[in-house]
């Protein structure tokens, strides 16, 4: 038996928003530690890795590991039936082929139950080594969102350069070129507004803005975002989900031909 209850449907709605543009179907892997999901987009350029530890739930029970194969669009439709303040419970039998969503209104006067069929999903799990990166940039999530959106109006590719001066985002296209520079401002009082750059050596990498714009759909989940970069390796974009998990995106770089 798997059963997990979260106090606010809003959180699960935000998680789905952050996944649904990249992934059509995914296995939600449930263990006694919590729920995780790893899936690549269909072109194998990017990957999303979600972790929601059990301590983030009001109630959590998972008698044995279970993978819930879920069509993300179907789950999104069901979650739209919940109010943001509703409590949500997910329930699945060990050998069952459905997952049940129960929504309870804050005043407990309304209870809705939706049953969704599970799918058999043949997913390729990738082994992703935890590693130290050459440069990291922590910035307000809304700032990163704005930069990706603004530079998309200029070109398809962004060059991210980290130097002692700061971090520079550059896009160029037929109509011209745009450059946005952020400087370290770790002295700003409010932590969520800080730009904190760590760097072992200068580097410059290029990425497809199309995918970065998908990643910024997670902006509602966290105040800040951290970009981790190493030359010629995939970029890691991480949004922390309070203190109980994260959503991480990996994006393969564009490499000079």
């Amino acid at each position: 038996m798997f059963e997990a209850r979260m106090a606010q449907a809003a959180l699960l709605k935000k998680v789905l928003e952050a996944v649904k543009d990249l992934v059509t179907d995914a296995n939600w892997d449930c263990t006694s530690a919590g729920i995780s999901l790893q899936a690549m987009d269909s072109s194998h350029v990017s990957l999303v890795s979600l972790l929601m530890r059990k301590d983030g739930f009001d109630m959590y029970r998972c008698d044995r590991p279970i993978s819930l194969g879920i069509n993300i669009a179907s789950m999104t439709k069901i979650m739209k039936c919940a109010n943001n303040n509703d409590a949500v419970t997910l329930r699945a039998e060990d050998e069952g082929d459905t997952v049940v969503f129960t929504f309870e209104s804050a005043d407990q006067e309304k209870v809705s139950e939706f049953e969704m069929k599970l799918m058999d999903i043949d997913s390729e799990h990738l082994g992703i080594p935890e590693r130290e990166h050459t440069a990291t940039v922590k910035m307000p999530a809304s700032e990163f969102h704005g930069i990706c959106r603004d530079l998309s109006t200029i070109g398809e590719t962004v060059q991210v350069s980290v130097t002692k001066e700061g971090v520079q985002f550059t896009a160029s296209g037929d109509t011209g070129k745009g450059t946005i520079t952020l400087r370290n401002n770790s002295s700003v009082d409010e932590e969520s507004q800080q730009v904190v750059i760590t760097m072992q050596e200068e580097l410059s990498l290029s990425f497809a803005l199309r995918y970065l714009n998908f990643f910024t759909k997670a902006t509602a989940l966290a105040d800040s975002v951290t970009l981790s970069m190493t030359a010629d390796l995939p970029l890691v974009v991480e949004y922390r989900i309070e203190d109980t998990g994260y959503i991480r995106y990996f994006l393969a770089p564009k490499i000079d031909d």
């Binding site: 072109s43 350029v45 799990h125 990738l126 995939p234 393969a252 564009k254």
Partner: peptide
Amino acid sequence: KAKQASLMSFFSKK
């Protein structure tokens, strides 16, 4: 011109 790399060339299948 820069070419889009695949994630599969960086991470191995489990």
